[in-house]
Design a protein around this nucleic acid. Sequence first.
DNA 1: CCAGTTATAGCACGGTCGTTCTTTTCTGTC
DNA 2: GACAGAAAAGAACGACCGTGCTATAACTGG
Lengths: 194, 194
Amino acid sequence: MSKGDETRHAILTEATAVAAKVGLTGMTIGQLAAHTGMSKSGLYAHFASKEALQIEILRHTRERFVDQVVRPALQAPRGVARLRVLFDAWVTWSETSADGGCLFVAACSELDDQPGPVRDALVRDEHDWLEMIVTVAGTAVSEGEFREDLDLEQFAYELHALTLAHQHSSRLLRDPKALERVRRAFDSLITHAA
Amino acid sequence: MSKGDETRHAILTEATAVAAKVGLTGMTIGQLAAHTGMSKSGLYAHFASKEALQIEILRHTRERFVDQVVRPALQAPRGVARLRVLFDAWVTWSETSADGGCLFVAACSELDDQPGPVRDALVRDEHDWLEMIVTVAGTAVSEGEFREDLDLEQFAYELHALTLAHQHSSRLLRDPKALERVRRAFDSLITHAA
DNA sequence: CCAGTTATAGCACGGTCGTTCTTTTCTGTC
DNA sequence: GACAGAAAAGAACGACCGTGCTATAACTGG
């Protein structure tokens, strides 16, 4: 990896952390330059525009998300076990990927009324994520652990709701019981799908 | 109501709509002045600072929330019926209160890592809202419609999760089935609490 | 209707925004 | 170690930010 790619990568990693805290829009080039110890123009030279940087941040985050959440799940045995790993990996991700929690969750309510390519990219990512949940839950159906007539998309909707709720209770309310809450809700979801 | 109070009220109403779209931080005084047809300084004279304006926006939204969501529920008969009215009123609220959906939901992920008085006010509001759900669900327990050993706070957590999910599916994903999804999830929640 | 208050506009401020251009410094190759 | 090319810094741009101050316009109670 050349020097340029190296710093570019470092910038994106730092930018992801900043964006998770202050938002993709709230994040500024100057702020980012200060955080990375670079000059504003030196940093900016790596990207075509702020919007391009925002999209790159999403792409970079997506890659790490696949590594840390999706891949572990695909290595687990099909069915509820895989679903558990997927969920646990997400919880871990939301606590460790950035100081501000899961960037995707934060970006969702920030961009939901801001049309443009950044929003479009995020919507694609969210659809992929929901589809991933549907697929994994589907393995639980075909393994006979979930009932045959389970509405998989409804299940994914409700599971996804828990991730949003967890960010809320853990990051906004700082509820010490946040982890316990989301785990119980997940278990209840699994139970009623059987 | 004097002239001053009148325009102040109009500003807050407009500001609520703008903030629901671009966020409490993303909203700017100039933008707001343009929207209301006032000069920047004329508008600004009604508030001590931008931060004070943000807090006033929350207060103003809270008042309308009580009118449109809480009050109707309290007029409904105790128990599940009241819970249904509360939930339906919230769904209506999220669709009609502002173009950007429920301001509180939007503010939650925007402010979850931004310490300060605005965040503090929001946290208080969210706690009150969760407590409201707990109280109403409690009436369903004492009416014998919900089981005696139901964990009310867990119930409130899961119901609140649905409001977050609805904002996500309806505003970000623009899912035509959003309403149906959240209704089904709500019914399932009610069923399993009985 | 007038006086006194209140509401609004105009203007300016230091600062930061995203962005561009030019110049300097560094990196990798023969 | 010189040289070409890439990477970073410096300086500047117009625009807009939040926030004051000052003057004018609009309201309101007597």
